Amino acid sequence: MPNGFYSAIHHQLYPHTSPPTLAEVVNWIARLGGFLGRKHDASPGVKVLWLGLTRLHDLVEGWQLCQSLYH
């Protein structure tokens, strides 16, 4: 894919100029694991983070597979 396409998607998902904080990244991973992140919810637990990391791993493998087919 052209770099402009990736850049456009990246800015739609995270439009900030500075890198995300650790808390933001943990929240993103927890949401992949099913964490809802409502105001009254506690911090995400180990199980939700593990599920999120597993899902993130699967998404990365899928992305790499698509990239290998494209090139």
Rank of each mutant, 00 (worst) to 15 (best):
V25I: 14
L32S: 02
W28Y: 08
H57T: 14
Q12D: 10
R38Q: 09
I9W: 14
H11F: 03
T17I: 09
W63Y: 15
P15T: 05
H57G: 10
G33K: 05
L59M: 15
P15E: 14
N3Q: 06
F5M: 09
G34E: 11
V46G: 00
T17P: 10
H11S: 13
H71P: 01
D41F: 08
T54H: 12
H11Q: 15
I9V: 15
L36G: 01
L51E: 11
N27A: 09
N27S: 14
R55Q: 13
L36T: 03
L22G: 01
G62W: 04
G4C: 00
G4E: 15
L53P: 04
L56W: 06
T21L: 11
L51I: 01
G52D: 01
F5R: 02
H40D: 12
S68V: 07
D58H: 09
P19W: 07
V48K: 05
G33R: 04
H40W: 05
H40T: 04
D41E: 15
K39Q: 06
L36F: 02
H57P: 01
R55E: 13
G62D: 15
G34K: 00
L56N: 05
L22S: 09
K39R: 07
Y6E: 11
L49S: 01
L13I: 10
R38K: 03
H16E: 14
P15F: 08
A8F: 14
S18G: 08
W50D: 04
K47H: 11
H10Y: 09
H10D: 13
W63K: 01
G34H: 08
H11R: 15
G62L: 11
P19M: 08
K39S: 07
T54D: 11
Y14I: 06
T17G: 14
G45N: 15
Q67N: 10
R31I: 02
W50R: 08
L13N: 07
L65K: 01
L22Q: 12
H57Q: 11
R31C: 07
K47D: 15
L51G: 03
L51K: 12
E61P: 02
H16I: 02
R31T: 03
W63P: 01
H57D: 14
R55A: 10
W63H: 09
I29P: 01
V25C: 06
L56D: 07
W63M: 12
